[in-house]
Design a protein around this nucleic acid. Structure first.
Lengths: 109, 109
DNA sequence: CCTGTAGGTAAGTATTCACTTACGTAAGTA
DNA sequence: TACTTACGTAAGTGAATACTTACCTACAGG
């Protein structure tokens, strides 16, 4: 997020980013790779340096994704608050005499 | 996030959540604790069970936080795109003859 | 009371993460 | 051609995370 926010101010080379942060340059490179894979930044060769900048499209996509999540969450929530019937007071019975003491799924150890 | 989204559909007890997930009940409890500390969910005793539901206020706060981030980022970005002068073509010179081979800050090991 | 269901918490462990150092390569520059 | 700056990537490592099992307490019903 720190990198993301710095890039918001304009394109920067890896070195410039790294110099303004408490971590090494390779660390920054690795973060940039993740951001790039996520489509949040783009890079361009610029002589021997490599300029990174935000990718507005990717950012917009992510933002939309979150917005949808909040909206969905609050929408469904409000709806559930209006009719507090249903969705409750059920579901305790276990599969008929299943005596297991709360076992895990998964776990193969 | 999975828990969050399930809760969006309405209040649920820990058991009900856990049954719908690939992890154990205690794991769910721990996540709920984190969500609660973050102000995203609230809980209420209901007989022997404990119902968890989203906390609209906390959710709204987080949402606002993100919105602000997107807005700031894109705002600054757009502004920087309009005047592509400055903010570039500078910053390569190192402190005059500093011969260190790229050292780290931090690292005390 | 005694028993069974619900659920929080402690302790231990495997997995994931974020960094670091060490190299290796490309592009400008003398 | 040799040197230097800028970067990416591999390998290794410590710390943080996300689980698991094992307990322990609270409430509800017979």
């Amino acid at each position: 997020m720190a990198i993301f926010q710095k890039l918001a101010a304009g394109p920067l080379a890896v070195n410039e980013l790294a110099r303004a942060m408490p971590v090494s340059r390779p660390a920054v490179s690795q973060h940039l790779k993740v951001l790039k894979d996520a489509g949040l930044v783009r890079d361009s060769q610029q002589g021997t340096r490599r300029l990174y900048r935000l990718d507005p499209e990717g950012v917009a996509r992510l933002r939309a994704h979150f917005d949808q999540m909040w909206t969905r969450a609050m929408g469904a929530f409000k709806q559930a608050a209006e009719k507090p019937e249903e969705e409750n007071r059920h579901g305790q019975r276990r599969g008929r005499g299943s005596r297991q003491k709360e076992r895990s799924r998964k776990s193969v150890h």
